[in-house]
Design a protein around this nucleic acid. Sequence first.
DNA 1: GTTCTAGAAC
DNA 2: GTTCTAGAAC
Length: 253
Amino acid sequence: MSLTILRSYALKEDPSTLPPTVLFSRDDHHLVVFDAFPKGIFHFLLLPRVQEPFSAADLSNLRSLLKCDRDSVKATLEQWKEDAKVVVKDIEDEMVSRYGFKWDIWVGFHAVPSMEHVHLHIVSSDLCSEKLKHKKHYNSFHPKLGFFLHLDEVLSWFESDSYFTTMAKLDKHKYEALLKEDLACWRCGSSQKNMPTLKAHLQTEFDDLAKKEKAKQERKRKFEEKQSASNDTEEEVSKKPKTTAGSDHEAEE
DNA sequence: GTTCTAGAAC
DNA sequence: GTTCTAGAAC
């Protein structure tokens, strides 16, 4: 695996020549590719194409990009946020059709990337994947550890000058140290002895979530069945028009 | 980024 | 003895 393969994708004159196993979607400004080593059931990378006002060097990584014109960078990140939403929607549709429910999807950058060319991770929060093998893999996606920089968090840096400059300059070594932190489940906080134990635990967490979500849907289905049955009865008995507005929203946890 | 593998941990 | 981690090589 070349460390510059993402850049070569982003520089392609005609990205549609990329094989369908690599390219998920594209427009004039970006490509979305399948991560070659997915760390969750769903894992994509959004790559900006090299174009004005940024050079390939500007787009080398998030750090280099953040040194460019502030307004341009902010507008670009906001555009990526919109582009990522489309991918998230596609993933959610696939989650529902394949698994019968949907779960969180994280959108963000690695504070210290290991490949050239800035890439936005779009990864499902299960973190259940054969390719997730090492502590650094896991810690690099742990949503609360600090190495994974959520896009919304990066955008928030633009709200405050001091925070922006602090975070943008933060030492690589401080971030890299986070990858060596002890293993802890991002969901329940339980500490995990080693990678095989953590992976088994993550699978259990995901299975539990699936069970809960399916039970929730079953309750909703039965409720709606009951509603529709009682409406039918009302109509038969009194011929009242049904007024069921607001009955189909889902309870949030 | 992965693969390989020595030696630490169990 | 086997499992697991982590550093070097690529």
